[in-house]
């Protein structure tokens, strides 16, 4: 479990005609909390997660993990050193590897002993209900099973922060319920600091203690989120300190 602090983060995408996608975003997620980021397409949600993961550098601002500066315009701790689990919007599963090989590959790089790896693998498989799918490749899985595999892969290593980028995109009602249930179980059992990006209110309500609305690259204050009906609006503060 780690504490995440994002301070005054800004980013302009040069490939997008110089559009500012993040404009001074600041918030904090306490250790073990699950916080949602809600926003429409193009509001900068994915860019925010990618900067936190170290896959992109900010133009301004800082990201701290447990008081350690990991991202700033001048400093960028390598993604492989951050111990972050990331569920990508399009999952990014490895088509040539089986379910079991996915977990083995992740665990091979985790700072765990042989025994711990075996235990962690078994736990993750059980947590995500993948017992009967170990020898299948992603193409041989259903939509929901693929999402579960992506979550399992993100959790398998020794992660301290879980980032979920639209993990319910493209899932219908029943599959969505299954994934929400799996993520809820993860939250209950692992108490992992989690940042969930979505534009669906239902899943945010089910999983998050607090939701931060992101509009045009800015985190709106509590009043703004209350007006827009976003759940919940916090404790009457600025809405930028989340998951207390």
């Amino acid at each position: 479990m780690s504490r995440l602090e994002v301070a005054n983060l800004s980013k302009t995408l040069s490939s997008d005609g110089g559009t500012a996608v993040l404009r001074g975003v600041s918030f904090r997620v306490n250790a073990g909390a699950c916080v949602g980021i809600q926003g429409v397409t193009g509001s900068g949600k994915t860019t925010l997660l990618r900067i936190i993961a170290g896959l992109e550098r900010p133009d301004h601002g800082e990201v701290h993990l447990d008081d350690r500066l990991v991202s700033s315009p001048k400093q960028n701790v390598a993604p492989s050193e951050r111990r972050i689990g990331f569920v990508f919007q399009h999952l990014g599963l490895w088509p040539h590897l089986t379910v079991e090989s996915h977990l083995d590959y992740v665990l091979a790089a985790a700072p765990l002993g042989r025994k711990e790896r075996v235990i962690r693998k078994a736990e993750t498989i059980q947590l995500c209900h993948l017992q009967d799918l170990l020898l299948r490749r992603p193409a041989q899985l259903s939509g929901g099973e693929r999402h579960l595999l992506a979550i399992a892969r993100a959790l398998a290593g020794e992660v301290r922060l879980l980032l979920l980028d639209e993990p319910f995109a493209g899932l219908d009602g029943q599959l969505k319920e299954r994934v929400i249930e799996a993520l809820g179980r993860v939250q209950r059992e692992r108490r992992l600091t989690t940042l969930l990006v979505s534009h669906g209110e239902r899943e945010l309500r089910a999983l998050c203690e607090r939701v931060l609305p992101l509009r045009e690259g800015r985190i709106l204050d509590a009043g703004g989120s209350r007006d827009s009906g976003v759940f919940p609006t916090g404790t009457g503060g600025t809405g930028r300190e989340a998951g207390r």
Partner: peptide, 8 residues
């Protein structure tokens, strides 16, 4: 990127 995040 997912392989990178897992520490490889």
């Amino acid at each position: 990127e997912s392989a990178e995040l897992s520490g490889h």
